[in-house]
Design a protein around this nucleic acid. Structure first.
Length: 861
RNA sequence: GCCCCAGUAGCCCAAUGGCAGAGGCACCAGACUUAAAAUCUGUUCAGUGUCGGUUCGAGUCCGACCUGGGGUACCA
């Protein structure tokens, strides 16, 4: 930090450095030449404010919630940070937004809970430790200290006594405790399955962590590996995760809800059991398929199983076995991206088997292909080429028949190569013929049900959450494997299972198995159940487990008997305003919603959604692009703070655009913000009336401006239009300046009222400037908890308004009228207007629309 | 391909279906100054991406399209 340049006796002298600083930043100003050289009480000096106020605020403890029921409670939460180095511009925006929300809630009189903590387990710490031959904790806790220091400078109005770190044993003890509850409820289980594997990080990834086929941490292309891994049964909650989104509608951004809806991917259809006929060495075999179009059963001309399944191997006849094995090898070599490309030619092999269509007894050849996914539905499909594009592509590649069973009015798919998926009337479909699509679907399900060969079902795209990781720096999975007892959860009184301490540097290097596995005296334990020799599970949990319940820990952060106190949590939750980036639209938000529902079912909380309102702030860009090292367009937050001050940076972030929009740092002007702050701050020197003066005697015009602002701000804040609130403050500052310089003067009580209103509202955005100004206005510190003046309705009434007279929607005249003019009076005035009669030019009048007192619209006949 | 979001002045952005402009940046001019900076005051600038519809009246509502951004993608 550069420190105040305009020290006593320097400003306004020939001190070149001081002047140069003035020129560059444009806000360390001397307000009048006569004061040049004086101790600079009229110099806006942000560095001095930043040096002075934090200690005062700490003493006031204004940001600790009372939790005594005297005020309505409100929980305002920012998505807690990951400690990767110091805070950056993105943090500056996100936490400015969250802090505005918290401070506004306080101004409204709520008892506000606004905590701060760190999501401090994770891969970057481990990679840093390997690189520096150190322990991940060193890097992690050093970064946390740096960030905590920066947050304090940034004047976040947080209750620091609630600070938590997910990597503290005091925290992860309870993550483990919760895991055992999930385990006992059957919601945490192990299974063998082909999983997403990152070859670089040497660990598995959840479905949600695979972005375009690549690892979301390091960008390496993900491969598949058959492994035994831990899962949370989030699929059991798919329907509720979808249903409960009704509670969030209108309070969460629509795009986030849409993303979650798509991710859960509910589709209604039917399960249909096909019998695969016995063939040479192979017995008959029932294989169910899932379809959303049971109405098209008569159009099925072949049957496909996913090539990479055991089922395919079980079905294939001896004759076709080698072809299938060769095909499977080919498929394995493809990258995930290649395999999933819809552009790619369809490939597959015949299995030598035939499936019997349960509705018409037809025999369909069974193929194995990679366009059918092993882990969606049943891993097998009935193929209806006429009405499904993928099936049609396959049919054309292998010369399989195409039979139209829905007449959509479009041309024959067999000819055009375009499948017809739309509505239509069923044809060539036995007793389904003649029905429309919905009726045929219902009838087909009925027929299958009667035969016992199928039923209506719902399928989800959502998969279970793969939570185990083969890395060190995470919460150990509290399970002990015993040859006799199986998987035994670690008893509560033995928690936490702490990480073995000695590991550092190369010992943490990814090897495909968890580094914990190498620590023998840690691994080998006695079984809590039978006392026999047993081994600890050596995987750690996905860090998203840690962050799926932290918002609950904040409420009773030091509780030693449970993860949280249920009564306290039920008092404060759900979070009233959650603030964070849209990058968590699926992962963190979906997982937290899932956890909350499980905790509800366990009777530990009495609500089913954790975050009743969500605000996604935009990104901070530079020159139209996200800041990145490779582009070299990064902006250093620390430098910006040194140059413009905390308040100017905060104000710039918020004034630039509505919170959800991106802020392009190249388009905004922190020096402009600083100029405004200095301008507002200077009002303090010109208010000459005493604190407590009776405002009623003040200048009416300025009072009206003040109270209009007071009346409008709650609505604007409620709609998160923070940028507009700042514009209104600028307006009020301008009006106050004018009143001082060329109006009733600085002694008028209205000037004090306006200045105090500005100060209290400004505190949400620029806490240092506001606190300093509050003191200059003669008040004791604590502007954050000062009360806003009550709106005086009679000041909002205007003496006269301008009514617009339109003819056919075009403005033709303006009339100055009383605000309570009646419709009839206004109509008469408008019709008497000379302008109007000139425009009407003798034409008659069809209608007159009157919206007193603002508008009249005359429609000529 | 499908699903969301956004297009208003040179730029960032305002505008309960009712006069397109609240605020800021930039630019220019004036006051102050020996001068400059700072400060104060003021001026200039678009008819709202395109086409159509609803309406007395559309930036705002509806439909289609264009452009940009985001999500998702052989999900049967």
């Amino acid at each position: 930090m550069s420190g105040p340049v305009t020290g006593a006796g320097q400003a306004g002298t020939e001190n070149d450095e001081a002047i140069a600083q003035n020129d560059r930043t444009g806000f360390k100003t001397v307000s009048t030449p006569s004061e040049a050289g004086q101790p600079d009480e009229n110099t806006y000096d942000f560095a001095a404010m930043e040096a002075r106020w934090p200690a005062v605020w700490d003493g006031l403890e204004s940001f600790k919630p009372l939790d005594d029921g005297s005020r309505e409670r409100r929980y305002v939460l920012d998505m807690f940070p990951y400690p990767s180095g110091d805070l950056h511009m993105g943090h500056a925006e996100a936490f400015a937004m969250g802090d505005v929300a918290a401070r506004w809630s306080r101004l409204q009189g709520f008892d506000v809970l606004h905590p701060i903590g760190w999501d401090s387990f994770g891969l970057p710490a481990e990679n840093a430790a390997i690189k520096r031959n150190a322990h991940p904790a060193e890097w992690t806790y050093a970064n946390i200290d740096t960030q905590a220091h920066s947050f304090k400078r940034y004047a976040i109005s947080a209750d620091w006594s609630r600070r938590i770190h997910t990597s503290d044993p005091e925290y992860y003890r309870w993550t483990q405790w919760l895991f055992t509850r999930f385990f006992n409820k059957g919601l945490a289980y192990r299974k063998n399955s082909p999983v997403n594997w990152c070859p670089k990080d040497q660990t598995v990834l959840s479905n949600e962590q695979v972005i375009n086929g690549a690892c979301d941490r390091c960008g390496t292309m993900v491969t598949k590996k058959d492994l035994n891994q831990w899962y949370f049964k989030i699929t059991d909650y798919a329907d509720r995760l979808l249903q409960d989104m009704d509670q969030l509608k209108g309070h969460w951004p629509e795009r986030v809800l849409a993303m979650q809806r798509n991710w859960i991917g509910r589709s209604e259809g039917a399960t249909v059991r096909f019998t695969i006929e016995a063939a040479d060495d192979r017995p008959a075999h029932d294989v169910p398929v899932f379809t959303t179009r049971p109405d098209t059963l008569y159009g099925a001309t072949f049957f496909v199983v996913a090539a990479d399944t055991q089922l395919a191997l079980d079905l294939v006849t001896a004759e076709h076995r080698s072809a299938l094995e060769e095909y499977r090898e080919q498929v394995k070599k493809l990258s995930e991206i290649e395999r999933q490309s819809t552009e790619r030619e369809k490939t597959g092999v015949f299995t030598g088997r035939y499936a019997v269509n349960p509705l018409n007894g037809e025999k369909l050849p069974v193929w194995a292909a990679d366009y059918v996914l092993a882990d969606y539905g049943t891993g097998a499909i009935m193929a209806v080429p006429a009405h499904d594009q993928r099936d049609l592509d396959f049919a054309r590649a292998f010369d399989l028949p195409v039979r139209t069973v829905v007449d959509t009015g479009a041309e024959d798919p067999a000819v055009t190569g375009t499948a017809t998926a739309g509505e239509g009337v069923l044809v060539n479909s036995g007793e389904l013929s003649g029905l429309d699509k919905p009726a045929a679907i219902a009838r087909a399900v009925e027929l299958l049900g009667a035969q016992g060969t199928g039923e209506g079902t719902v399928n989800f795209r959502l998969r279970d959450w793969l939570l185990s990781r083969q890395r060190y720096w995470g919460t150990p999975i509290p399970i002990i494997h015993c040859a006799t007892c199986g998987e035994v959860p670690v008893p509560d009184e033995q928690l936490p299972v702490t990480l073995p301490e000695g590991l550092h540097g190369n010992q943490l290097k990814p090897r495909g198995v968890s580094p914990l596995a190498a620590v023998e005296d840690w691994v080998n334990v006695s079984c809590p159940s039978c006392g026999g020799p047993a081994k600890r599970d050596t995987d750690t949990m996905d860090t998203f487990v840690d962050s799926s319940w932290y918002f609950l820990r904040f409420i009773t952060p030091h509780l030693e008997t449970a993860p949280f106190d249920t009564d306290a949590v039920n008092r404060w939750m759900p979070v009233g305003q959650y603030v964070g980036g849209v990058e968590h639209a699926i992962l963190h938000l979906l997982y937290s919603r899932f956890f909350t529902k499980v905790l509800f079912d366990l009777g530990l909380v009495n609500f089913t959604e954790p975050f009743s309102s969500l605000l996604n702030q935009g990104q901070v860009l530079n020159g139209g692009k996200a800041m990145s090292k490779s582009l070299g367009n990064g902006v250093d937050l620390g430098e910006q703070l040194d140059k413009f001050g905390v308040d100017a940076v905060r104000l710039t972030m918020i004034f630039a655009s509505p919170p959800e929009d991106d802020v392009d740092w190249a388009d905004v002007s922190p020096s402009g913000s600083a100029k405004f702050l200095a301008r507002a701050w200077r009002l303090g020197a010109d208010v000459t009336s005493a604190p407590g003066v009776d405002f009623a005697a003040g200048d009416r015009a300025l009072r009206a401006a003040t109270h209009r602002t007071l009346a409008d701000v709650p609505e604007l804040m409620g709609a998160s239009k923070f940028n507009v609130v700042i514009a209104r403050l600028m307006e009020l500052v301008n009006a106050t300046r004018k009143a001082i310089d060329s109006g009733p003067g600085g002694s008028d009580p209205a000037v004090r009222e306006a200045a105090e209103t500005v100060t209290v509202l400004l505190g949400m955005f620029a806490p240092y400037t506001a606190e300093d100004l509050w003191e200059r206005l003669g008040h004791t510190p604590g502007v954050a908890t000062a009360a806003l003046p009550a709106v005086e309705q009679d000041l909002l009434a205007q003496e006269s308004v301008v009514a617009v007279v339109q003819v056919q929607g075009k403005v033709r005249d303006r009339l100055t009228v009383s605000p309570d003019i009646t419709e009839d009076e206004l109509r008469a005035l408008a019709l008497a207007s000379e302008q109007v009669s000139r425009i009407l030019d003798g034409r008659g009048i069809r209608t007159v629309i009157v919206r007193a007192p603002k508008l009249v619209n005359i429609v000529p006949s």
